[in-house]
Design a protein around this nucleic acid. Structure first.
Length: 613
RNA sequence: GCCAUCUUAGCUCAGGGGUAGAGCACUUCCAUGGUAAGGAAGGGGUCUCGGGUUCAAAUCCCGAAGAUGGCUCCA
């Protein structure tokens, strides 16, 4: 972390204390949980018993916080012996702090997750237990805290309270539910303003809103939550993306296969998924009966295609792809537009490879991923999800170590911007998770490449080696777009609905000036010509003003609009209206109709037109 | 699944214990139009669903479903 980041961190953390100070002044009976720094800001968990705070109280809290800031209270660190600290917590009636301290005393740590860890008192000696912990005080307010803080309450930059959420004490639903107050904070008012503007922009681009406005998908109560239906426009997006992905895969030697969407549950018992994630299988809403279920993933099915006949080392790699829909019983609270659904379609593939072919296959896949996201104008970075020392993983640790080495080498060779994330691996093997950064700077995981030694083992997959001995292949799972639904949610927000020409559901809209026979005929001639060139074109000959029809085309963010009337019929020349983000030599040049259509075709075919946002 | 908030026409939303509202969209008519909304008329709602209170419930109360924001989870 740079010095600047350290300072921002201290500011945010100090603001959490200042908020707690303000809340303690306004509600002296408050029981405080923890108050860590999070991305872009901070929060504090509070428990007010029967009272609940609402966002209407933010004004009061913020103005109290401003008072604390103006008082320029110094942050003073002190140490207390652990028992003394526990007494303090008792006297201050802070049961949550007391619990943390007791855990510290007993275990030297608390069992809670990462966020809590930064909140714990400093361990000054010994491994197994703690002798003393650190406190920070500002004015009358003292809190168990490891720090660091800024020197005084007036050095905290700009902040704003954002929202209230329910949160369980230490993240467990067995515990008391507290209220979590979130704030954002930045070093300068300007950065805060930029952040708030970004949130405004994100709201405007919300894919659920754009999905409705641009008529891309719908969710019907009768069909059910998490089961989106795609309209013709949305389906064009889906199909074009899938087509591109499959072209990349075909070039990499992948052949299409097909599997039904239902299976005997037994398949997942053999694969090991059922025992590993029982809670994901025991819910009837995606199950058809005790013995059959909707498929929640694809790999075990494809493994059966491999297993259907004897394989030779000469056959490998065998590369199968299938863009297919799977069904997962996501909990209702987890569903969100297209980004979290119950029916998700993956551009899935599985390669069965010899161990000496793993690196090449990984390299080839990384190439596809790079090509895809270059065209989609989404910069990418990579998380190498490796195992940790826990026993959550199947298989031989030695094989894992070897595979992880190969993966890291490939990441280096391909010059990927990568981070290693221990403990993030799937239970059957290490993964490469590809993270894209959208136009608003938000990060999303999309593509994933996963190495799997376990399913070949579970399904007893074999090939006959050069020496005549049966050998076990490895499986390489991959999805370039990941879930198409989820990718669309990211991409709709990335582009704000201004899709590049090759993807645009409607590439050209022809607007007629009037309803005269001659005009209508000319419009339909141009439409036919464009359609024959493979373009997606519609004619708006509604009995409306030209201005109105232009406006409608704009609202649908159609890349090219041409108005046809008497002038165009006579001259054969059009003055296209081109969506502003599209780079062209001149926005206002007149074109011969046929020439113009051919230019669009070229742009479409190259798939390289970037939407500059 | 848990907590909070919300659910009124296809969409965006106002209203609120006593005959259900607007804009857009839709239909029809007039206007035949020139690069972001031409004019008029009309149709459209068991006010999410189920119970309760009341002379009377869309409105108040309870419950359910769905949505939204979080929490938790994400093979």
């Amino acid at each position: 972390m740079s010095e600047q980041q350290d300072n921002l961190h201290a500011m945010r953390h100090s603001l959490a204390h200042i908020m707690a100070t303000a809340i303690t002044r306004l509600w002296p009976e408050v029981k405080l949980g923890i108050g860590p720094v999070v991305e872009n800001g901070f929060y504090y968990d509070i428990d007010l018993g029967d009272t609940t705070i609402s966002e209407d109280d933010f004004e009061r809290i913020e103005s109290e916080m401003k008072k604390v800031i103006e008082e320029k209270q110094e942050f003073v660190e002190s140490e207390k012996a652990i028992d003394e600290a526990i007494d303090w917590a008792k006297q201050a009636s802070q049961p949550y702090k007391e619990e943390l301290l007791n855990d510290l005393k007993r275990a030297g740590t608390t069992v809670a997750g990462d966020l809590d860890a930064s909140e714990l008192g400093t361990i000054t000696s010994g491994d197994s237990a703690v002798e003393s912990v650190s406190f920070y005080a500002n004015g009358d307010f003292t809190d168990l805290c490891r720090g660091p803080h800024v020197e005084s309450t007036n050095k905290v930059g700009a902040f704003k309270l954002m929202r209230i959420a329910g949160a369980y004490w230490r993240g467990s639903e067995k515990n008391a539910q507290m209220q979590r107050l979130y704030g954002v904070a930045f070093s300068t008012p300007k950065e805060l303003r930029q952040h708030l503007e970004m949130l405004e922009e994100a709201k405007k681009r919300d894919h659920r809103k754009l999905g409705q406005e641009l008529d891309l998908f719908v969710i019907s109560d009768l069909v059910g939550p998490g089961l989106p239906l795609f309209t013709p426009r949305g389906t064009v997006l889906r199909n074009e993306l899938i087509k591109f992905s499959e072209e990349l895969q075909r070039a990499g030697g992948y052949e299409a296969v097909w599997a039904p969407h239902m299976t005997r549950t037994e398949l997942y018992k053999v694969s090991g998924h059922f025992d590993k994630y029982p809670e994901r299988f025991d819910v009837s809403s995606v199950e058809s009966s005790d013995t059959f279920m909707m498929k929640p993933m694809n790999c075990p099915h494809v493994a059966q295609i491999y297993a259907s006949r004897p394989r030779s080392y000469r056959d490998l790699p065998l590369r199968y792809m299938e863009t297919t829909t799977m069904y997962r019983d996501e909990k209702s609270g987890e569903l969100h537009g297209l980004s979290r659904v119950r029916s998700l379609t993956q551009d899935d593939s599985h390669a069965f490879v010899r161990h000496d072919q793993i690196a090449d296959e990984m390299r080839s896949i990384i190439g596809m991923v790079k090509d895809m996201y270059a065209v989609l104008d989404l910069p990418l970075s990579v998380d190498l999800s490796f195992r940790d020392d826990s026993d959550n993983y199947f298989g031989d640790p030695k094989v894992w170590a070897e595979a992880q080495k190969v993966i890291e080498e490939v990441a280096k060779e391909e010059e990927l911007d990568y981070r290693i994330e221990p403990g993030e691996a799937a239970f059957y093997g290490p993964k490469i998770d590809i993270i894209v950064t959208d136009a608003l700077g938000r990060k999303w995981q999309c593509a994933t490449v996963q190495l799997d030694f376990i399913q070949p083992e579970r399904f007893e997959l074999e090939y006959i080696g050069e020496d005549g001995e049966a050998k076990r292949p490895a499986m390489v799972h991959k999805a370039i777009l990941g879930s198409i639904e989820r990718f669309l949610s990211v991409y709709i927000e990335h582009t704000g609905g201004k899709f590049p020409v090759w993807l645009a559901p409607e590439q050209i809209r022809i607007i007629t000036v009037n309803q005269e026979e001659e005009t209508l005929k000319f419009a339909s001639d141009v439409q036919r010509e464009a359609t024959e060139l493979g373009l997606r074109v519609t004619v708006d000959n509604a009995n409306e003003s030209v201005g109105k029809k232009i406006r409608n085309a704009e609202l649908y963010k159609v890349p090219y609009t041409i108005v046809l009337g008497e002038k165009e019929i006579e001259s054969g020349v059009v003055m296209p209206r081109i969506r502003k983000d599209i780079e062209v030599e001149s926005q206002h040049e007149a074109h011969n109709v046929s020439e113009f259509l051919k230019t669009i075709v070229n742009e479409t075919k190259s798939r390289t037109l970037k939407s500059s946002l």
